[in-house]
Design a protein around this nucleic acid. Structure first.
Lengths: 252, 252
DNA sequence: GGTAGAGGTTGACGTGACGTCAATGTCAAG
DNA sequence: CTTGACATTGACGTCACGTCAACCTCTACC
């Protein structure tokens, strides 16, 4: 049982380059090195190599594989934490796919690739037509002009406030508070006040948004997945909508 | 509208390092570079940056983003091919998760991390206890001794034959042939002849495997997800099983 | 003994999208 | 003048190798 590097590579279904790499990083040393520098492997090395490749196919990283084979951690333990990461990746992919699908749909519906994230990560201007139809033709233009008129400092401060509001929403949602309770209603009020500060939204700069606009916006948040992404997922957006709806019914 | 690199980074929710990177790769050049070398950006750059970040969140690569923004390809087209990729990744992850789960289960059931891939990517020796119980105590030992007695060349040739058989199975499955038809039955026969060449399997080296062993093996292929992975997935394993079962009923 | 040809070696670059120093220059404020 | 915040370029590290490049070794054949 004495194989050259190519032989053992073929036996295990990998390449000699990979074996040299495993030697370099100390994962699998050759059994013996000839006086000519050639690497030689025996059957114990083949077994170790096949275990390496088995774990590699499961997606483990080479350092983690080394720890398992050298008994520093148990295989089930390593696999279980690896499993968490795999599931996390799967979730991330699922969300990304949903976003891509919805974006393709929006683009094919004739919408433009708009700049997002100016207001709250949710591009209100994306709904230009809808907004114009419902609240007047110059809403978008006014909003845009207002934004462009701000200094860099003002914009940064604005964004700071926006992201604070957003993360407070997420925190409340994750703690599982009641959308109709005091805490969520206080957030809804802040959201209302915030909208009052945005010209281009009906009521912006004045008395604040109308009940209909506020309710419509809440529904749009749920309808567009990209908003949800900034508010803790679809369920987060629904939480925000419920709180906003309750607020509107009570106060507006 | 003239921002420093830090200012525009904050506005868009990214870092100055990222902006320098985008400049380096030609994705987003600063609007103006001062005599001191400082980068400056205007609102057109901000819009472009935000589009970049939007597409980046969907998972597109920076070169692909550049092509979309420079109108070399349409956004829906780019997104659709990206979507294929994402779905492929999702499938790969799902299979990997299934394998990890099954491996954890096997390990916790007291089994060892065995070397696979010696015979057909499916480690028959993993079923040592089952094999011993059903076909005699020395089956595993004989198989192991036989394998170790081969020269490197013989082993490589063996693996070549094995992988040829495997890929022929996959090809037949993917073409959707009838498991009970001539083509699949010819493959089942080759599988039978192949098993006859494996000592340690009942009938190996002699008249060939028994009907019960052949049927049991076919069921094991379906039961273990790792076998399926080498034969075109779960459905592939089922196809192989059906063909083998039909063969056994007809010929053995 | 010369010469292919197959196979071995080390060394180094490339992949993707930046994070993270390191060394150094610039600018406004006190 | 000093301090501190911010700017620059340059270069390494990430992960698991693929892919040359330049060179050495072994076997087979004429």
């Amino acid at each position: 049982m004495d194989w050259s590097i190519q032989e053992i590579a073929k036996l295990a279904g990998t390449t000699s380059r990979t074996l040299r790499h495993y030697d370099d990083i100390g994962l699998l040393a050759p059994t013996r090195i000839g006086s000519n520098g050639y690497r030689h492997y025996d059957d114990a090395a083949l077994v170790r190599l096949q275990r390496i490749l088995l774990l590699r196919e499961l997606g483990l990283g080479l350092p983690a594989i080394g720890e398992v084979l050298d008994r520093e951690v148990s295989a089930p333990h390593a696999l279980r934490s690896h499993l968490e990461w795999l599931r996390g990746e799967q979730d991330r992919l699922a969300r990304q796919i949903a976003s891509v699908v919805s974006t393709i749909g929006a683009l094919e519906g004739g919408e433009q690739l708009m700049a997002e994230n100016m207001f709250d990560g949710f591009d209100h201007t994306q709904y230009k037509e809808e907004v114009e139809e419902r609240w007047g033709k110059d809403a978008y233009a006014k909003s845009d002009a207002w934004w462009r008129s701000m200094s860099a400092d003002e914009k940064a401060a604005w964004q700071q406030r926006v992201s604070q509001l957003s993360s407070d929403w997420v925190a409340a949602f994750e703690r599982g508070v009641d959308p109709a309770g005091d805490e969520a209603q206080a957030l809804a009020q802040r959201h209302f006040e915030w909208l009052r500060g945005v010209p281009g939204t009906p009521g912006g700069g004045g008395a604040g948004p109308s009940k209909e606009y506020f309710l419509g916006l809440a529904e749009m948040y749920v309808a567009d997945e990209r908003f949800g992404a900034n508010y803790g997922g679809q369920a987060g957006a629904e939480f925000v909508r419920d709180a906003m709806t309750a607020y509107a019914e009570r106060e507006l």
